[in-house]
Simulated assay, not measured.
Amino acid sequence: MKILIFGGSGFVGRHLAACLRQRGHEVTIPSRRDVDWMRPDAAAARLLLQGQEVVVNAVGVMSRHASVLEQIHHYTPALLAMQAQAVGVRRWVQLSALGADEAQPVAFVGSKGRGDAAVQASGLEVAVARPSVVYGRGGVSCELFIKLARLPVLVLPDGGRFLLQPVHVTEVAAGLAALAEQADAAGQVVAMTGGRVMTLAAYLDVLRQTLHHKPPLTVWSLPLGLIKPMLPLANVLSNGVLSPASITLLQQGSCADNRAFADLLGHAPAPAEAFAQMTQAAAGFQAA
């Protein structure tokens, strides 16, 4: 099939592109010059989309500016989906986020939810993927976690007791590829979560022991009340990576039933303890 991937050179997108090419598909990856996501050109987008059978939207950003999140996660996908439908694209696969909801007050997942709803209303066959915390080298949050895991002692908000269900990027890519290929995937909203629910502290400990081969992590708890006054400044310095909103999302948790995801993969998703070995295996395969 002819498959166009928006965000195909990004963290998840490049793994997806490799996976689809391995499966024999013709993959097109537009550049940022082809589509300006802050100021999209409908006519140019229509020309770009002509002849494509499937579109995958793997574009996502972190920003402290709600207007940027709304444009990139909501308004631009809505416009592009309308143009795709107009030129005969059949299917649209949307990479969203676990917890995405139109009514969410947190700008990141709220904008994702509104974008999901917009493309679902476009008339295309739409499938939505909503991953938990994604592990993979090059991911912004993952690289932060890997650096933190190297430290012997960490001071974490609330002792790092926030619940996560981390998932490996290669399995997210495989799940997205399956949604792109399957004609009966339309209407599906798939939670892409890993094989084990764990706390943030436990996840960092797993990374410390499996990646850095260090002894177990020591965690000291810092009450959230002491952190909150510093979060507005952290929001500016980290451009939204560490912010009141990100702490809210951690408190809400990032876990979901993964049986539909397992059906897409054909096997149970891997737990975090297997991530280091999976990354080595994937690197060896690519080198070969």
Rank of each mutant, 00 (worst) to 15 (best):
A43V: 13
A44T: 07
A44P: 15
A44E: 09
R46D: 11
L47A: 07
L47F: 06
L48S: 03
L48P: 14
L49R: 02
Q50S: 07
Q50F: 00
Q50K: 06
Q50V: 07
G51R: 00
G51L: 01
G51E: 00
V54E: 05
V55E: 02
V55P: 05
V56Y: 13
N57V: 09
A58T: 11
G60R: 13
G60C: 09
V61G: 00
V61N: 01
M62I: 15
S63Q: 12
S63F: 12
R64K: 15
R64Y: 13
H65C: 09
H65R: 15
H65A: 12
H65S: 11
H65F: 15
A66D: 14
S67A: 14
V68K: 13
L69S: 11
E70H: 09
Q71D: 02
Q71L: 09
Q71S: 04
Q71T: 06
I72E: 02
I72A: 10
H74F: 06
H74D: 07
H74Q: 06
Y75K: 08
Y75G: 00
T76E: 02
T76P: 00
T76D: 00
P77Y: 03
A78Q: 11
A78Y: 05
A81K: 01
A81C: 09
M82I: 04
Q83F: 00
Q83M: 08
A84E: 03
A84R: 00
Q85R: 14
A86E: 13
